[in-house]
Simulated scan of single mutants.
Amino acid sequence: MTDLVDRVAARRSSSKVTDEAPSHDELLRLVAAAGRVADHSGLEPWRLIELRGRARERLGRALADAAGDDKSSSKPLRAPLLIAIVVSPRESKKVPAWEQEATASGVAHMLNLLLADSGWGSMWRTGSFVRSEPVHRMHALSDHEYLLGWLYVGGVPEAGTRAATPLDPARFLETVDD
């Protein structure tokens, strides 16, 4: 049995997934855990939107509108489930907007880790039209909200994913003495 550190270190993005996807009930459980990230003042400045079936087709049309294309984008059809990551900033004198966005990013990353640990393939995708008006409208975001991207989620192909390249932590961790 591997421990959490080993499982997190082994996580890889899955650019190709199968047509299987976690159920809504399974997602609820994972979202409840992912929402436990650091959140100054408990503002919960985030929300997630589950896109399946035709909702992915509507996103493809919104992406095409944003790009000025006549043909719908097939990108949202790469996975059976897309989870839109929405930053929903709250009024706060103590917590700046950037910190609230960091919380939303933390939820997305934690959910990505939890999906991988539950046996699902996922990849966080963005793109040049993530904050375009047609995409904003398609997700029915309020004026103060914006997207960070989508988690594309599905089953892990039998071939799996290649092993993660080990990270050299000494490149990133510095020590400051008194």
Results as ranks from 00 to 15, higher is better:
L48F: 11
S73Y: 00
L115N: 06
G154C: 06
G119N: 09
A21T: 06
L151R: 00
L27H: 03
A62Q: 00
A67Q: 10
A21C: 09
L27M: 15
L141Y: 09
A38E: 10
G155A: 12
R78K: 11
G127T: 07
D6K: 13
S118M: 07
A108I: 03
T161D: 13
A164V: 11
W98Q: 07
R54E: 13
A104V: 03
E99P: 03
M110L: 14
R78E: 04
S88C: 12
V37G: 04
V17Y: 02
H139R: 06
L43A: 06
D177L: 12
D117L: 10
V135R: 00
E174K: 11
E133S: 05
V153L: 08
E44T: 14
H139L: 15
E133N: 00
S72C: 04
S14W: 12
T18G: 09
M138K: 00
P166N: 07
V5M: 11
P76R: 01
A33R: 13
F129H: 12
L173K: 05
R61T: 13
R90E: 15
P22C: 15
K71Q: 13
S73E: 04
L48N: 04
R56C: 01
E44D: 12
S92L: 10
V8A: 13
G149S: 09
K16P: 01
R47G: 09
R90D: 05
L151Q: 02
R58V: 08
P166C: 11
L115G: 07
P76Q: 02
P96I: 12
S15T: 10
A62P: 00
A104T: 07
A170T: 14
K75L: 07
L4I: 15
A62Y: 01
V135D: 00
S73I: 00
L114T: 11
L113P: 01
S132W: 01
A21V: 05
D117H: 09
V5S: 10
L48Q: 03
S142H: 11
H109R: 06
K75R: 11
G127K: 01
S92G: 08
S13H: 01
V31E: 08
R7C: 13
L82V: 03
R56S: 00
A79M: 05
S15E: 09
R162F: 14
R52E: 09
P157F: 12
